[in-house]
Design a binder for these strands. Sequence first.
DNA 1: CGTTCACTTGAATCCGTTCAAATAGGGTGG
DNA 2: CCACCCTATTTGAACGGATTCAAGTGAACG
Lengths: 220, 220
Amino acid sequence: MDELAILEQAKSYRTVERGTMLAEAGEPLDHLSSVVSGCATMSRSFADGRRQMVGLLLPSDFIGRPGRAVSPYNIEAASEVTLCRFERRTFEQLMDRSPNIAHRMLVMTLDELDAARDWAVVLGRMSAREKVINFIVNLARREAAAHDGTVAEGPVQLHLPLSRETIADYLGLTIETTSRQFSALRRDGLIETPSAREVRIPDFARLALEIDDDDGGVIS
Amino acid sequence: MDELAILEQAKSYRTVERGTMLAEAGEPLDHLSSVVSGCATMSRSFADGRRQMVGLLLPSDFIGRPGRAVSPYNIEAASEVTLCRFERRTFEQLMDRSPNIAHRMLVMTLDELDAARDWAVVLGRMSAREKVINFIVNLARREAAAHDGTVAEGPVQLHLPLSRETIADYLGLTIETTSRQFSALRRDGLIETPSAREVRIPDFARLALEIDDDDGGVIS
DNA sequence: CGTTCACTTGAATCCGTTCAAATAGGGTGG
DNA sequence: CCACCCTATTTGAACGGATTCAAGTGAACG
């Protein structure tokens, strides 16, 4: 039997409500899954309360790693989340038998590695304003990619899956600074906020230009 | 013929002097290699001059990714570096034929992914002092791991493979702040600096405690 | 209509940066 | 071997962006 067909058969779906811990740092995680809908966060906390997200998990993203029982990060549902799950052992056995699946896992992991390193650049060298713009722009791009192709150059509207506090922990900022940056972007006419969780971007290209242009843009 | 034996045969060594660019961001990289000795840095630069390292490459670390011709980062020899190289195409063909090698690559990539995410936590949430301590402690641990096992709890001496400026770009700080933190640690008796490139740690456990203890330590 | 919780805004403070100058160390040529 | 130079590092002082602490606003819900 074809391995992909077996995978198809072994999968199960699970929907959890917002706030559910899908993994605790240091604790075993016996399912591998991919996000079908919703948004989850991956983070690490310090004993003194500081917290840093290391990734956002959006539809098509993978949770858990084959060959590793323990999750080094907390994974929490930031909204209602539906997962497509595989028992870890089953998945690992299939992977051992199918070079195809193993290869797909490597490609996926390499992509995550690039994303994690790009994230380090954002955290290490961007100003608060740039971080917030980068967050909004990437979310819009990610959402567009999920549907068809590129982001419209005109007005774009998007729903924020995270609270201000969670955005702050994602961007390595405080909640107040994050909020002030949203306000500043609003004053500058770069965004509108119909509600705290909705962002309308009148001119996407202009917003993206703030981080992609020659004065501060990332090379290559 | 056994794949590892073929790999053994396909490898070649190359030594480059300090400052050599091993890869340019956005440019093709037609060799995969592992660091035999020396130290290289992986970084991305902004058009305005800001730079952020996303990783240090020390002996046993791998450079380049199978299946990806282009390096997203600049890779530069921070000291004289000796590499053990494989032509990318050759390596990829071997990987396709050997689940063993493919599996090793996946494990390695997962380790790098953890390291990159941990790095994001350091950049996003640690103070300048914590970043510098973290740098020194990890370097000592890494060096100890290369030899036998754990770091001696007593005095430890180590050579810094990076200049202050490079350390600053690694830690997401300025050179001045980095230097001031070294001075502060010296004043506090946590380190001694026989020369700018040498650090002596009189009491390793005490230094490590500054970032691992209950007031600010990372949980799990 | 009042309560609650998330978000926003204000003011003061602090940490890290910036700009500037001093010091130290390493290598070179005399 | 010494004087000099060049560069890396350190230190000082002023500044600024992000944080902290505190109060205010607003929307959702009972």
